[in-house]
Structure formats: C-alpha cells, structure tokens
Design a binder for these strands. Structure first.
Lengths: 116, 116
DNA sequence: CCCTTACTGAACCAAAAGGTTATATAACTG
DNA sequence: CAGTTATATAACCTTTTGGTTCAGTAAGGG
C-alpha cells in the first residue's frame, strides 16, 4: 500500500547529502541557505535535493518573508524504520527457530537421527 | 566512521527490487534462481542486484554445487536503522524541549515576557 | 565426454541522477 | 521604483543505474 511512499523515502535517503540535510533538520527547522552552508555544492543543487526530499514526504516547506524554512516530517522516517525492522524481526525469528530446533535436538538425542 | 558503509546500505535499499530480495532473504537463505522467480526481469539483472547487495554488505554468498545460496547479513540493516533512529530521536527531543518550554511558560506566566 | 543447470561477465543502451551556469521570481528595503 | 536577498527554473552536461542480449564458466548427471 505505502509501497510507493516507502520507495520515495528510501530513494531520498540513499544520497549522503540528503541524509546530512535530514540529520540537520532533525535538530530543528532551517532555511535553504542554512542547509546549504555545510556543503560545497551550488544552491540549485541543494534546491534539487530539497525537492526530492519534499516529494518523498520527508520534509515540508513553508514561507517566511523571502526564506523557505524546511521542516522534517516524522512519518516517512517511521515508515522506513518499520520496513527495516520487519525484515530484521523475520531474520531474528528465523534464527530463534533454528536455536529452538538445536535445543530440541540436544534435549532428545535419541530422536530425529542425532546419531554421532 | 561507518559513513561509507551506511552509504552503500542505503543505496542498496533504495531499489524496490533489492528491497524485495532483502525481504525474501529475511525469511531464509535462497538461491539466485529462487530469488529471481517473483520478478519479470532477466537473470543477469538479478545477478547485478545481488552484486550491489553483496558489495553493500547486506548479503553474503556461498557455493553449494552449482547454486549460490544468498544469506542476509544483519549488521548493515542495523546500521541503517541506527541512523534513522538517531534522527528520529533528535526530532523527538526537539519536540519534547518545545513542550517543556511551553509548560514552563504556562507555569510562570509573569516571567520571560509571556505578555501577549 | 557431452549436456543440462545455475549462474556470471561483457558489451551495449536509454533513462535518471547529480552537478553546473545563467536566468527568473518573490519579497523585503531604501 | 530600484536594489538586494533568498530561492527556484531552465538548459545543459556527465556519470550512474537498471535493464537488455549474447556469450562464457562451473559443477553435477547420463
């Protein structure tokens, strides 16, 4: 359902510049110029990154005089985490099952061909 | 420090096909043919995706007769989650601070120029 | 030894990503 | 209204990405 949204979020987070922007915005809203400051790329490049982030839903932008303050949205970040978390939990579940199996085998060595 | 590794992990997870492969592998190891089965793309395309996943550290591959079983590694998945989680926590901390501030303001309306 | 199964590699291609510079636009400032 | 500040758009370029097809290689099976 949210597959498309999730796709956009992961796409957006794939770029290190955009991740840095997200990390910065996690500390508080910032204008485009402020966000651009740490990087050695042009303003239009930053503008493009922000557009990608905006379309992915990771950020929203308002208007304040000439500036366009950027705001980090929590939901897409949550969606990304949820996806990874699910995979990780399945991975764990699988591991636990193996553990359980090994325990069962050890507990009843005569059954299930534990010979040797 | 792990910035490069993190970069590779997010890059790898940006593609929906690769995320589907990761999700599949979370349920257990699988061969290349098995992984390719749900998709309508060619085997070499799958092979390329697997190489991306392998170089990102998300999966490892062994050899079993002619097949190359793929195995999901947990660490890069953890690294990705950690990064997002950190951002999210900062986001929350910021919010909490605001809440605290508002509470403080409400508690002592005469101080700090709450005049309106 | 050949044949099939299971992949991988090489060469190629179209589209997208990320960057640039130069040119708008939008809002405040004098 | 002219000028400055803050940001966006347009046009363009290069590299990367994701896909293709057409061989190659590697390991059993007959």
């Amino acid at each position: 359902m949210t597959g498309d949204r999730l796709d956009a979020a992961f796409m957006a987070l794939a770029d290190p510049t955009r991740r840095a922007i997200v990390a910065r915005l996690a500390r508080g809203d910032a204008t485009v110029t402020e966000l651009a400051e740490p990087f050695s790329i042009s303003m239009p490049a930053i503008s493009k990154h922000l557009k990608v982030l905006e379309r992915s839903g990771l950020i929203t932008r308002s208007r304040q005089a000439q500036t366009r303050p950027c705001h980090l949205e929590r939901e897409p970040l949550d969606a990304a985490i949820d996806w990874i978390e699910t995979s990780r939990q399945l991975w764990n579940a699988r591991f636990d099952k193996l553990e359980a199996h090994l325990h069962a085998v050890q507990a009843t060595p005569s059954k299930k061909g534990t010979s040797r």
